Amino acid sequence: MAEQVALSRTQVCGILREELFQGDAFHQSDTHIFIIMGASGDLAKKKIYPTIWWLFRDGLLPENTFIVGYARSRLTVADIRKQSEPFFKATPEEKLKLEDFFARNSYVAGQYDDAASYQRLNSHMNALHLGSQANRLFYLALPPTVYEAVTKNIHESCMSQIGWNRIIVEKPFGRDLQSSDRLSNHISSLFREDQIYRIDHYLGKEMVQNLMVLRFANRIFGPIWNRDNIACVILTFKEPFGTEGRGGYFDEFGIIRDVMQNHLLQMLCLVAMEKPASTNSDDVRDEKVKVLKCISEVQANNVVLGQYVGNPDGEGEATKGYLDDPTVPRGSTTATFAAVVLYVENERWDGVPFILRCGKALNERKAEVRLQFHDVAGDIFHQQCKRNELVIRVQPNEAVYTKMMTKKPGMFFNPEESELDLTYGNRYKNVKLPDAYERLILDVFCGSQMHFVRSDELREAWRIFTPLLHQIELEKPKPIPYIYGSRGPTEADELMKRVGFQYEGTYKWVNP
Rank of each mutant, 00 (worst) to 15 (best):
129 H>W: 12
167 I>L: 12
67 I>R: 01
238 K>F: 02
108 V>F: 12
66 F>V: 09
165 N>I: 08
68 V>Q: 05
65 T>Q: 03
41 G>C: 02
122 N>C: 15
79 D>C: 08
89 K>N: 15
38 G>H: 00
104 R>W: 06
36 I>E: 01
79 D>E: 15
203 L>Y: 01
171 K>A: 00
7 L>W: 05
194 D>S: 14
91 T>C: 12
180 S>A: 06
95 K>T: 11
141 A>W: 03
136 R>H: 13
50 P>D: 01
27 H>P: 07
38 G>S: 01
25 A>L: 08
28 Q>M: 11
134 A>F: 09
202 Y>E: 04
86 P>V: 13
24 D>G: 15
187 I>D: 00
230 I>G: 00
121 L>A: 05
40 S>Y: 03
218 N>A: 02
44 A>L: 03
92 P>G: 12
20 L>S: 07
178 Q>G: 12
74 R>T: 09
211 L>K: 04
174 G>W: 01
133 Q>M: 14
98 L>W: 03
243 T>K: 01
27 H>Q: 13
134 A>L: 09
10 T>V: 11
95 K>Q: 13
40 S>M: 03
6 A>K: 13
62 P>T: 08
41 G>F: 03
50 P>W: 02
205 K>I: 04
104 R>H: 12
256 I>G: 03
53 W>E: 00
226 N>M: 07
230 I>M: 07
244 E>R: 09
104 R>T: 05
105 N>H: 13
158 C>W: 04
226 N>C: 09
256 I>P: 00
52 I>A: 10
95 K>R: 09
199 I>N: 07
43 L>N: 00
198 R>A: 05
153 N>I: 08
185 N>A: 13
114 D>N: 13
74 R>L: 13
189 S>M: 14
124 H>G: 08
179 S>I: 04
206 E>F: 09
62 P>D: 05
211 L>D: 03
233 V>R: 01
142 L>M: 05
133 Q>D: 13
49 Y>M: 09
118 Y>D: 04
112 Y>C: 03
176 D>I: 04
229 N>E: 07
86 P>Q: 13
47 K>T: 02
11 Q>M: 11
139 Y>P: 05
158 C>A: 10
140 L>S: 08
141 A>L: 00
29 S>K: 15
124 H>C: 13
198 R>W: 05
154 I>T: 08
36 I>L: 06
54 W>I: 09
16 L>M: 13
249 Y>I: 04
171 K>F: 04
88 F>R: 01
183 L>G: 03
28 Q>R: 12
113 D>R: 10
44 A>N: 00
232 C>S: 15
48 I>W: 02
118 Y>A: 07
167 I>W: 02
182 R>L: 15
225 W>Q: 03
210 N>V: 02
237 F>G: 06
228 D>T: 10
199 I>Q: 06
141 A>Y: 03
136 R>P: 01
229 N>P: 00
90 A>S: 07
49 Y>H: 00
204 G>E: 02
243 T>P: 09
75 L>W: 12
74 R>G: 15
255 I>M: 12
121 L>P: 02
90 A>L: 10
230 I>N: 05
155 H>Q: 12
78 A>F: 13
91 T>K: 12
118 Y>G: 05
208 V>W: 03
193 E>Q: 01
11 Q>L: 11
82 K>W: 11
39 A>L: 06
184 S>P: 01
92 P>W: 08
50 P>T: 07
194 D>M: 08
157 S>K: 12
161 Q>Y: 15
186 H>I: 10
44 A>V: 05
8 S>T: 15
169 V>C: 06
73 S>D: 00
235 L>N: 01
52 I>C: 09
35 I>C: 09
130 L>D: 10
197 Y>P: 02
238 K>N: 00
170 E>F: 02
100 D>N: 14
16 L>I: 15
167 I>F: 14
228 D>K: 09
128 L>A: 08
59 G>I: 00
178 Q>I: 12
88 F>V: 06
172 P>K: 05
205 K>Q: 00
56 F>H: 06
200 D>F: 02
55 L>K: 00
49 Y>G: 02
18 E>N: 15
119 Q>H: 12
251 D>G: 05
34 F>I: 13
178 Q>S: 15
105 N>E: 01
125 M>K: 02
44 A>R: 03
191 F>I: 06
104 R>F: 07
21 F>V: 11
61 L>C: 07
32 H>W: 08
20 L>P: 15
218 N>P: 04
101 F>W: 04
187 I>F: 09
83 Q>H: 11
191 F>L: 10
242 G>W: 03
188 S>D: 07
36 I>T: 03
173 F>A: 05
196 I>P: 02
6 A>D: 15
104 R>N: 07
31 T>G: 11
80 I>E: 00
111 Q>C: 08
76 T>Y: 07
80 I>H: 07
177 L>P: 00
190 L>A: 10
196 I>A: 02
62 P>N: 07
107 Y>F: 14
8 S>I: 09
22 Q>G: 09
12 V>I: 14
222 G>E: 15
197 Y>I: 02
14 G>H: 13
118 Y>H: 09
138 F>V: 06
102 F>C: 06
41 G>L: 01
48 I>F: 03
22 Q>T: 13
26 F>D: 10
212 M>D: 02
51 T>I: 08
233 V>E: 01
99 E>Q: 15
83 Q>V: 13
122 N>G: 12
156 E>G: 15
226 N>Q: 08
81 R>Q: 08
225 W>A: 01
246 R>G: 04
174 G>P: 04
125 M>W: 00
81 R>F: 11
149 A>Y: 15
107 Y>R: 02
244 E>L: 14
252 E>C: 10
73 S>K: 10
158 C>S: 07
107 Y>L: 08
27 H>C: 06
120 R>G: 15
249 Y>T: 02
84 S>D: 06
94 E>A: 05
53 W>A: 00
58 D>A: 08
84 S>Y: 14
52 I>R: 03
186 H>L: 07
160 S>T: 12
182 R>M: 12
175 R>G: 07
190 L>P: 01
200 D>I: 01
219 R>A: 12
162 I>T: 15
144 P>L: 03
191 F>H: 03
183 L>S: 01
89 K>Q: 13
209 Q>H: 05
145 T>R: 06
